[in-house]
């Protein structure tokens, strides 16, 4: 939208400028501009195929994109000279299918990045991990392997793994979509806790009531770009665009 203003860089955690992504002929992201301030929770909604997941993967540099710029706390992370591993280490990601490492115990899953990427001493990492796991009701699962845990527990472990090293930004990509309805609540409660602790979160979800209660801002993705952005009240109660109205009508009357 506007040019980057360095003076405000400390308050803006993430800034996307005209990001494009094509899969062959399929133009998935068509010039995405987006800004996320520190401590802000932004929820991305939109139909499947609207580019939500691609957007997440692009920010994390897992997906190579075709045009535009992405700034993380003022640093241009799309500069070819940037060390992508260092960038990824500053962003926490939680996936739809948890993607825990099945050959590692919960504690090793959670402390892996701290030990092997951030160079934190194993006993320090361990203490912090156990503290976090206990806070989120997983204190008795520390020594278990992921396949012994329920989906909700696995996803909570995945969230702890993502926040373990205090990332500047948390990307939550439809983290409840693969869960039993009974287990969705425990995961969303954890996200609410993270918001209250001041995390900066970009989250894609189909849980509209949760989006309404937690989001500072809602972004409605349509046709590869944010079609409408606003507070939950603006988007859910008085959507301006006909596409937004149609999407909300469909998803709430499923």
């Amino acid at each position: 939208m506007t040019a980057a203003h360095p003076s405000a860089a400390h308050a803006t955690v993430l800034e996307l400028q005209g990001v494009h992504k094509l899969f062959g002929d399929n133009h998935v992201l068509r010039g995405v501009d987006l800004e996320i301030a520190s401590h802000e929770v932004v929820v991305v909604i939109g139909a499947s195929g609207s580019g939500k997941s691609t957007l997440m993967r692009t920010i994390n540099l897992i997906e190579r994109f075709d045009d535009g710029r992405i700034l993380l706390s003022g640093d241009d992370i799309t500069d070819p000279a940037v060390d992508v591993d260092k960038v990824r280490a500053r962003i926490g990601v939680v996936f739809q299918h948890f993607n825990l490492f099945p050959h590692m115990r919960v504690i090793d899953n959670v402390t892996l990045a701290a030990r092997k990427v951030h160079g934190i001493a194993p006993d320090v990492a361990r203490d912090r991990a156990i503290g976090l796991l206990e806070t989120f009701g997983l204190g008795d699962k520390v020594r278990d392997y992921p396949d012994r845990l329920s989906g909700g527990q696995q996803q909570r472990v995945a969230i702890v793994r993502a926040i373990m090293t205090d990332p500047e930004l948390l990307l939550l990509d439809e983290i409840t979509s693969a869960l039993d309805p009974m287990l969705v609540g425990e995961v969303l409660d954890l996200v609410r806790d993270l918001k209250n602790q001041g995390s900066t979160i970009l989250m894609a979800t189909h849980e509209m009531s949760f989006a309404r209660s937690v989001a500072d801002r809602i972004v409605f993705m349509h046709g590869g770009r944010p079609l409408e952005t606003g507070t939950p009240e603006q988007i859910f109660d008085a959507p301006r665009e006909p596409e937004t109205r149609e999407f909300l009508a469909r998803i709430t009357h499923r």
Binding site: I62, D85, R88, A89, I91, F101, L112, A113, K116, H118
Partner: peptide, 11 residues
């Protein structure tokens, strides 16, 4: 997805 998860952690 295991590689993606690992690389996302910065490994």
């Amino acid at each position: 997805s295991q590689r993606v998860a690992a690389r996302s952690l910065g490994l």
